[in-house]
Design a protein around this nucleic acid. Structure first.
Lengths: 363, 363
DNA sequence: CTGGGTAATGTTTACGTTAACTTATGCTGC
DNA sequence: GCAGCATAAGTTAACGTAAACATTACCCAG
């Protein structure tokens, strides 16, 4: 493939827009084609082109065909900026999130993107590398300047409350993973119920009590799971061992596991996510404690890999896709109903997936 | 918090825009405030407001302060649609991808989003649930209508070539994970080198040959890793065992592993990703084959969990963040240089991370 | 064969922003 | 005291689209 000299611009501005096997042009004409261009070629007014483009009635067949032909020939695409300017909305939903790397977040975002696309909305991503107050505020400010009609926030909302953040009026918000249901529309997995399922399962197997490895303290999900764990134990009149603190990573689960493996009294552990459960399994294995023979382990999330841990992990299944779906539903409802919405929390149910990492205690 | 009746719209359109502790307003005024509004309040022309907003010179201090005050009072935000219309570009990069759930993709996207943000670009996500020809073409069409200046494609490009896809002129493309370096700007991990590192490591330990579990056939990454595996064995004059085929999932690695565990001749396996290596480890464990005592295992990706597998996995580290960074660099270069770029492939190096799943063969 | 209506198409305007140009103001230097 | 000029501000126009309004052309009833 030959390219023109270093001075740039291919010489031929017009003519064959098609190129090679693929129709994706590597070159560009500076100016996109507008409705006026199409109108000129088709010999009609640009308004007629607009009507054809939007499928409005009142254009006779022959004219429509002519316009469509002209569109094809010129490769016309509507200019969404002009459209947005005209209509006052962008058909775009912003997503602010910390850490796309965690399984849950990326699955949620994927579901959001899919469902938003189905409704004709695009997704604009604003990642926050370090969840400091400043960064979050910065993201919100940026979001305010961006072309979005609504924002889905997948981050601890308390990071926002401490500062004064303003989104432009007309921008709606739905929050994931937060207890701010009194001020926002919140969608979340039913963390507490999931944790209760996990702990009760272990108690039902006959374990006297259940140890717990938490997630980071700043996480509401982690907080709620820990609360539910404590509550179930208390209600059952069981002793509540001191919780061990992790940070969601397998590494932190391993560190916590080293301590637990050394304690023969520990026969059942509920890890606040599957990654930490993985680390825990490793620590128990290295400590010579059989799972589930000596120690039973339950995780949270049901990541796809969990079925292939050694042994396959009993865990609480989270329906991230459903969370994403409801987020989109939520913001669209807000957009469409204007301001007539109320704050509240929607909980997505969980279910326990029993595999081979849990069993009754020995003896 | 009381809301007005079902008929909607809060009665008070003006007044306290501030609300509760957070400044994020749940309500909205239908009309965003424009430069004209700010200009009216500040008693200047809207052009002066524009100059202040963009930090242009030629505005005297007092006037500037007045305008800034008016902006603050009204909560003015520039309208990016109008800006985009004016400038003819959107400051947005589209990302087309299949499956955000895979570790590599989500990490790459995260890096893309971070670096794009640093350059003042936002990211618009177009996910493809099922990578059929139609869906990919649909995504491209949608992308054409969206407000993007460039597109990063994280998907097998051959899906595009078979059909006629047109992106509007002026939209630049960078492709990840493809061999289309003759037509596009391609950024990718150096798959072949990574695979060579893995296989050579096993041979260097003294293994006679190395088995291989591939990814899906449609994946170029998988194809290239398999080719490199075969090539290294051939160059070393070793027998090339028939490859086993997986689909990236741990489950598929487990299935392949069941076959390998039954074959006492197999002492070293290179799995095309870490998930499949995980499944393999489980199968070997269940089959009573010690790792690394009886069988050595190497993965690919170096996902964070790999360090906590049982045993910790020796694997090829991929620098997804760097891939994302270079993608952004690539599209920005294309945008800024106009059409003066050439197709080509940029490879990001890998490195072998040796942990505890590999050792010399017994005896 | 003409008035009233309707269907098809054209013209104008506004959306919010900003480049390019124009006007107003104050100041320097001869 | 005024030409000449810098500086600060305002005015106009255009980006691409589509609603609202205006204009045709045509058909049919009377």
């Amino acid at each position: 493939m030959d390219l023109d000299g270093p001075s740039g611009r291919p010489a031929a501005p017009a003519g064959g827009a098609q190129r090679g096997g693929s129709g994706i042009p590597g070159g560009r004409r500076k100016q996109r084609v507008s409705m006026a261009d199409v109108a000129r070629l088709a010999g009609v007014s640009s308004q007629t082109v607009s009507r054809v483009a939007n499928g409005h009635p009142g254009v006779v067949g022959a004219t429509r065909e002519q316009v469509l032909a002209a569109m094809r020939e010129l490769g016309y695409r509507p200019n969404s900026a002009a459209r947005a300017l005209r209509y006052g909305q962008f058909n775009t939903i912003g997503v602010i999130l910390f850490n796309l790397a965690s399984t849950g977040n990326s699955r949620t975002v994927e579901a959001i993107a899919t469902h938003a696309a189905a409704e004709g909305y695009a997704i604009t991503l604003i990642p926050i590398d370090v969840p400091t107050q400043d960064n979050v505020l910065g993201a919100f400010t940026r979001m305010g300047e961006l072309a979005v009609d609504a924002v889905i926030v997948i981050i601890e909302i308390h990071l926002l409350d401490a500062g004064t953040v303003t989104l432009p009026p007309g921008v709606h918000v739905v929050v994931v993973d937060s207890d701010a249901g009194d001020r926002y529309s919140v969608v979340d997995t039913d963390q507490a119920e999931g944790a209760r399922l996990a702990v009760r399962h272990l108690l039902d197997l006959g374990h006297r009590t259940v140890w717990h490895i938490t997630g980071p303290e700043t996480s509401f999900a982690s907080q709620r799971r820990a609360e539910a764990w404590r509550q179930v134990l208390k209600e059952a009149g069981r002793p509540v061992p001191p919780p061990l603190h992790g940070d969601w990573s397998a590494e932190s689960g391993y560190a916590a596991g080293l301590a637990l493996a050394a304690d023969p009294a520990c026969t059942a552990v509920f890890a606040s996510n599957d990654q930490m459960a993985l680390g825990l399994l490793r620590a128990l294995h290295e400590g010579g404690r059989a799972v589930p023979g000596d120690v039973s382990v339950v995780g949270f999330d049901d990541i796809p890999d969990a079925a292939c841990f050694v042994p396959p992990l009993t865990t609480v299944h989270q329906d991230f896709a459903e969370v994403g779906r409801r987020c989109v539903q939520g913001v669209l409802r807000q957009i469409r109903d204007g301001g007539d919405w109320r704050p509240g929390t929607e909980l997505v149910p969980t279910r326990l997936v029993v595999r081979e990492s849990t069993a009754p205690p020995r003896g």
